[in-house]
């Protein structure tokens, strides 16, 4: 067995590409999470509303997404939509669409649980001072729910960030894809994958730390 000779100069030369990949992955995760929150919120309210026929389509959407491998969804949306006559989405847009739908299903469940676990007393107090139904949602239910679900939303952001590595399958130049490219050009297997892993780890850690600060800032809801 020949001792492996580490050569990190390859990494330094490609650091820009790595960092771009990392930033792209982060951006994709954040955008998908934000759009997913909008979908999730709408779905959570649809499922808890009194309008009964809204319930089952949302249920179907959530169950479908949560029980299908994400990689399959990514490939299906990227290669399948054009087959069905939907053109004009590039790789990144197609991936954001997929990850948004994916995040939306998970956020729906997060928000639904948040709404269900919110003590009814806050809604009652909001009623008692005379707030209208819309005002109760706007000034009491949503802000309290936001604080209750913040830890779950944070965890979802970190999972989504790691899931962006699957975009490599459709050649979106995020970190995993970049690492594969650099590896193919340089054959520095260990250096490349160690670098990618460390960058994922460091970024996840920084996000988690940042979100912990946000959670602390909003910790008034116990």
């Amino acid at each position: 067995m020949i001792a492996y000779q580490f050569n990190w100069s390859v990494i330094w030369r490609n650091m820009d590409a790595f960092l771009h990949g990392l930033a792209l992955g982060l951006g994709l995760a954040v955008v998908s999470l934000l759009l997913g929150c909008v979908i999730g919120l709408a779905c959570a309210f649809a499922r808890t509303s009194r309008i009964k026929w809204l319930d089952w389509p949302v249920w179907l959407y959530v169950e479908f997404i949560r029980n299908t491998p994400l990689l399959l969804l990514i490939i299906f949306v990227y290669f399948g939509l054009p087959q069905m006559g939907v053109y004009g989405l590039d790789k990144i847009e197609s991936f954001v669409l997929t990850l948004t739908l994916y995040a939306g299903a998970y956020m729906c469940e997060v928000f639904r649980t948040g709404l269900a676990s919110m003590p009814n007393q806050y809604r009652e107090a909001a009623k008692a001072i005379g707030l209208t139904p819309w005002q109760r949602q706007r000034y009491v239910v949503l802000p309290v729910m936001f604080r209750i679900t913040l830890p779950a939303v944070s965890n979802n952001l970190i999972s989504l960030f790691k899931d962006t590595s699957l975009a490599a399958a459709i050649a979106v130049p995020e970190l995993t894809f970049t690492a594969r490219q650099v590896n193919a050009n340089t054959f520095r297997v260990f250096e490349v994958w160690i670098t990618a892993s460390v960058l994922y780890l460091a970024a996840s850690y920084v996000i988690a730390f940042g979100l912990r600060q946000v959670e602390r800032r909003y910790a008034s809801v116990r």
Binding site: Q121, A125, A126, A128, V144, Y218, S220, V221
Partner: peptide
């Protein structure tokens, strides 16, 4: 209305 359990808005 004043409730037994206060019901202040926690946020």
């Amino acid at each position: 209305f004043v409730f037994q359990s206060f019901n202040l808005f926690p946020h």
